[in-house]
């Protein structure tokens, strides 16, 4: 073992019997939370699918106006961030605190890159008059009113996903701040793992969003 490694473990809270029980409870709780998140997004996916069934033409027209390449790049960015997050988890298990911190910061940077690209995409949408809900701005697809349904759904899905990612980046930075203390891994190693689940899940949602909005409708 490397000299850089610090002890790793879980400080058992009073009402748990042992560290295993506590870790299991924490991971279990996070999975349940993720199930609720999945159903949260499923409502939005359902809208996208129903709109596609009702108005296939309108949906294609919208998909051709979405910024396909930004969407694809963003998917790749999130896949990279998943890798760095997995690496952070593995390093936390080994007790390699510095490497773990570096990976966490890399993950946060990739998340921020995603958000920046997303912001640029929104700006392009605005410039290209893809914002039907701004009354003061003419809408480029105004000929087919049903196109608005998918555009609106697109903004809500990506907005909600962006919100989740923003939360993820903030929590990750907070966690990194706490984890800079050498004693962190001795007491709270499982927090990195539990947070990692959340991060991968945001990635998973985007992996579904990309085909549902950008790809399948083209």
């Amino acid at each position: 073992m490397s000299g850089a490694a610090v002890p790793v473990g879980i400080e058992v809270a009073e009402h748990f019997q042992d560290a295993n029980q506590q870790r299991h409870a924490a991971v279990f709780g996070m999975w349940l939370w993720l199930a609720t998140e999945l159903l949260l997004f499923s409502g939005l996916f359902l809208v996208a699918i129903v709109v596609r069934v009702m108005y296939p033409d309108a949906v294609t027209a919208v998909a051709l106006h979405l910024k396909f390449w930004i969407g694809a790049t963003n998917t790749a960015v999130l896949i990279c961030s998943s890798l760095t997050m997995s690496a952070a988890i593995e390093l936390s298990r080994l007790g390699w605190r510095r490497g773990m911190l570096a990976c966490m910061l890399a993950t946060a940077s990739l998340g921020t890159l995603f958000l920046a690209l997303k912001g640029y995409e929104y700006w392009r949408d605005y410039v290209e008059h893809m914002t039907p809900f701004f009354g003061f701005r003419p809408y480029v697809l105004s000929g087919d009113r049903a196109t608005q349904l998918l555009v609106d759904d697109y903004f809500i899905i990506t907005g909600l996903h962006g919100l989740h990612l923003t939360t993820g980046v903030s929590v990750l930075l907070g966690l990194a701040w706490i984890a800079r203390r050498p004693s962190f891994l001795r007491h709270h190693q499982h927090r990195v793992e539990v947070f990692g689940l959340y991060w991968h899940f945001i990635d998973l949602i985007w992996i579904s969003v990309f085909p549902i909005l950008y790809l399948l409708n083209r």
Binding site: V47, M54, A58, P132, R145, F155
Partner: peptide, 9 residues
């Protein structure tokens, strides 16, 4: 930003 609005289908 509506998805149920009948005015837009």
């Amino acid at each position: 930003i509506g998805v149920f609005n009948p005015a837009i289908g």
